[in-house]
Amino acid sequence: MTDPEPLIPKHGGYRRLKSFQVSQLVYDVTVRFCNQYVDKRSRTHDQMVQAARSGVQNIAEGSAASATSKKTELKLTQVARASLEELKLDFEDFLRHRGHELLDPQHPALRRFKTLQPKTLHEVQAWVAEERRQATEAQGLSRTLTDRQEVVHSSFPVRGRPCLTTLSSACLAANAALSLLNLACYLLDRQVAKLAADFENEGGFTERLYRVRTSRRNQQR
C-alpha cells in the first residue's frame, strides 16, 4: 500500500540545488569583482550586485514557495534566470568597454577553470593568481630565449620579438564569472523545463488538494 499523498510536500531544499550553489558563487565573485574593478558610486556597481543577488534570492524564494504554489516557484526561478542573463551582459560590456578579451570557451585558461570546478571565491581567486603566474613565467622565458638568439645572431637585424599577451586579473575574473554564469543559466534552464513539465502533468496546489480530499473521502467509505 502506497503512502497517501501529503497536502504539503517537502520543500525549501534549495541549498542542495546545483543551480543555487553556482549562483551563490556567482554572487560572491560579482561582489568581489565590482568592489575591485567597478566604481562603487556608479549605477553599474549596484546593478551588477543586485542582479547577482536576485539570482540567488529568487531561487531560494521559489523553492520555499513550492509547497503551495508551483506556479510561483516556476515564475521566480525564471526571474532568477533573467537576472543572471542581465548580469552576463554587464560582464560582457565590461570586457568590451575596457578592451579586454572575451575568451573562447575552448581557451586553455577557461578549460583549466572548468576542470577545477571551483566551489568558493577563494578557489576562483587562486585560479586567477595561478594563471597570472604561469603567464608571467612564460613571458619571461620567451624574452630570455629571444635575448639569447639576438646575441648569437647579433650581426643580423632584429625584426621584433614575439609578443605574448598576458591576461589581466580583471579580464580573467570577468571571464571566470561568465563561465560560471553560463553554467548557472544552463542549470536553471533545465530546472525551469522540469518545473514546467511537472506542473503540466501534476498540476499545482489546487489539484493536489483535490486529490488529497478525494483520497480521504474514499478511505472513509
Rank of each mutant, 00 (worst) to 15 (best):
V124R: 05
A80K: 01
L110P: 08
H100I: 07
T115L: 14
S63G: 07
S155A: 14
R81M: 05
H107A: 14
S179Q: 10
P162I: 00
Q149N: 03
E130N: 10
H122T: 00
H153W: 06
S169A: 15
L145A: 15
Q106R: 15
Q106D: 15
S179M: 11
L110Y: 08
I59L: 15
L84V: 03
L121Y: 07
A109R: 08
L187P: 03
A82N: 01
A176H: 08
G140P: 07
V79A: 01
G140N: 15
A80I: 05
L188G: 08
V124K: 04
E137R: 02
A82I: 02
S63R: 02
S168L: 13
Q57V: 06
E85T: 09
L103I: 12
D147C: 03
A64R: 13
S179F: 06
L89E: 12
V152S: 00
S179E: 13
H100Y: 12
L76V: 04
A174V: 09
E101K: 11
P162C: 00
C185E: 03
V56E: 05
L116G: 12
S63L: 04
V158W: 08
H107T: 09
L178T: 07
R112D: 14
N175W: 09
K70N: 04
E123R: 11
D90W: 06
V128Q: 10
S54H: 00
L164M: 00
P118M: 12
Q149K: 04
A177F: 04
W127R: 11
P162K: 01
A60E: 09
S69L: 01
T136W: 03
V79Y: 02
L110C: 10
K75S: 10
A109D: 11
P105F: 03
A173Y: 11
L116A: 15
A176K: 08
A60L: 08
T120E: 10
E150T: 09
D93V: 11
S142M: 00
F113W: 12
R159Q: 11
K119T: 11
R81T: 06
G55I: 06
L167V: 07
R53W: 06
E61D: 08
E131P: 08
V128S: 11
